[in-house]
Structures are given as C-alpha cells and as structure tokens.
C-alpha cells in the first residue's frame, strides 16, 4: 500500500470495477474471491488506474480480467517476479498478485520464498483449492496425501506444502488465511493485506466444484473458525501453534504480521521517487566514462 490510496476524489464505487462474464464453472470459489477483492478495493478507495494486478496461469489467474484495473497476466508461476519488477519501477502502484496454489507454490515456489525474503511491498492472493483446475484435476502442491486424482490414483506422491507454516517460519511480514465462502471476512483480510507495508500473503481456501470432492464448501464451513482478539498476530509462536494444530479446526484471519524494511528502501535510486520518467544525468555519465 502507499500514497495513491489517499486520492479520494472522486469516490470509488463498486461499479467502477465493472461486471464481466467469466469462464468459471457455476459454484466456483473464484466468484466469492472476486467479489471480496472488489469490496476491499472500494473500502480502500483505490481507483482502477492506481492498481496493478499481476497474475500467472490457472483459473485463479483469470480473475483480474473480470474487473477493471491495470493488468499483466504473465506466465505460469512467474507472477511474483513480474510484480516485483513493476513495483520497483513504480512504487506508487498498488500491486496485487492473484494466482492459484499451483502457480504460487508449485511452479513459482522459488519466487514465493524469494518474495518473502525480499519483503517486496505487494499483496499475494493465493487462491488455494488444493487441485489443478485448468488442466482438469491433477494434484496441486497443497493436495493432501489421501486425495486421489486421475493423475495420482494412489494420491499425491509428495506431502502437502503448507504455505502458511513456511511463511511464518520465514518471518513473512503479513500472513493471513481467508475462505472464499466468507466474503465479508475475506474482504477485510484483503484490505488489511493491501494496507500492510511489505509482503502480504492471503492464502484463500476455496472449493473446486469440478475436481476436488474432498474439500467442499461444506467441508470448509464445518472446520473454519475466525480468529478473535485472543490471538496476537505479532506472536510468532502463537501463529505457528494455530497453523500446526488440529487439522479439523482451520483458523481464518491474520495469523502473523511484523514490521520490517521493505525492498524498495534498500535501493538508493528509489529514495527520490519512481524510476519512471527520469532522464539520464549526462554530466555524471561523462564523468563516469572519463574515469575508466
């Protein structure tokens, strides 16, 4: 988040983000997430042109096509590096990355770790349906061992990846979990993530009505609970305890957060504003050349 959120004139309304036909299956969790994203942006009063969405490939990565904003829909797994470059080029842009569990934690796993370490100031909305939808039902990095798929008839050969445990262990500066079925709560989390200064992960649980018969809407509703004031998100041990406790009780909310320097502070060149629109300092350049 940054200064651009302060421009409150004219008022940003839900209609500004448009209403588009989608390519998703009826009942897809992506609908709830899309609605929550729009609500959060209205709450934050960020206009479409101040936003940059970056997405990868997958059903989730199509989401930003269904609202009005700047968008770079790149390659599978590579949304975070594109977003990192764009944010460094112009820190005034509010940057959100939107992609699925396969894109964010599988193909893009290395970039996920690197983004946490960099503390690049952007929000990652990871649509986590624990299955590959676009390619029709293979296991994803977050699929549990007991989940049988067409490609993994005996269940996945690897243990499931736990993005939240990894993020908290690595001192990620904002770690939250939402559920596509609780739109208002999710919108609040997204708004908090965008407001947060630094890398913000919102892992969003969502049912896949076509390929995931285990983690249905009902399955989540029976297990999810919202964190209340008894959880201190600055307490890392408490966050770990919540994440690693009983799988039958899934906490939603801000699990962990900290304040630490963001990536752009490490570049002297960015102290004087965005890189965009600058001119070459010819006198300095002539001096540099002469000094070789």
């Amino acid at each position: 988040m940054n200064a651009s959120g302060d421009r409150r004139d004219p008022e940003v309304r839900l209609e500004d983000f448009g209403d588009f036909e989608t390519a998703w299956c009826p009942g897809c969790g992506n609908f709830g997430i899309l609605a929550a994203v729009k609500r959060a942006l209205v709450e934050l009063q960020i206009a479409p042109h101040q936003l940059l969405f970056v997405s990868g490939i997958g059903q989730a990565a199509k989401s930003p096509h269904y609202l009005r904003a700047n968008l770079f829909n790149g390659l599978h797994g590579r949304a975070l590096p594109v977003a990192t470059g764009a944010k460094l080029a112009n820190p005034e842009l509010v940057v959100l990355v939107q992609s699925g569990d396969g894109c964010s934690y599988g193909e893009g796993g290395n970039h996920f770790l690197a983004a946490i370490r960099r503390n690049i100031d952007l929000t990652l909305l990871a649509h986590d349906n624990r299955v590959y939808g676009l390619t029709k039902g293979q296991a994803s990095p977050t699929s549990p061992r007991q989940m049988q798929t067409k490609a993994q008839p005996g269940g996945p050969t690897s243990e499931a990846f736990d993005p939240l445990a990894v993020a908290v262990t690595m001192h990620a500066s904002f770690v939250a979990r939402g559920f596509a079925g609780r739109q208002a709560h999710l919108a609040g989390l997204i708004a908090a993530a965008v407001r947060h200064r630094g890398f913000a992960l919102v892992d969003i649980l969502q049912p896949c009505v076509s390929y995931n018969r285990i983690h249905t809407h009902r399955w989540y509703e029976e297990r999810c609970y919202e964190l209340d004031g008894s959880h201190d998100p600055t307490d890392r041990d408490a966050a770990r305890a919540r994440i690693e406790s009983n799988q039958e009780r899934i906490p939603l909310g801000i699990l962990y957060r900290n304040e630490r320097p963001v990536l752009r502070e490490r570049f002297p060149a960015l102290q004087s504003g965005p890189l965009v629109g600058r001119s070459v300092d010819r006198a300095a350049l002539a001096e540099i050349v002469a000094g070789f």
């Binding site: 940059l52 590579r78 590096p81 990192t84 080029a89 965009v276």
Partner: peptide, 23 residues
C-alpha cells in the same frame, strides 16, 4: 535499480515487469 534474482527465470520476468511499468 539492480536486483540479484533467485534465478534467471525471475530475472527476466522482473525485467519485463519493470519495463511494463515504465522503467
């Protein structure tokens, strides 16, 4: 801004993101 990336895949994608945004 010069950033050492986690791999060459990230490097070129970062450069594309920066260029898209105007740097």
């Amino acid at each position: 801004v010069v950033e050492q990336a986690e791999d060459e895949i990230a490097a070129i994608n970062m450069a594309i993101g920066a260029s898209f945004a105007g740097a």
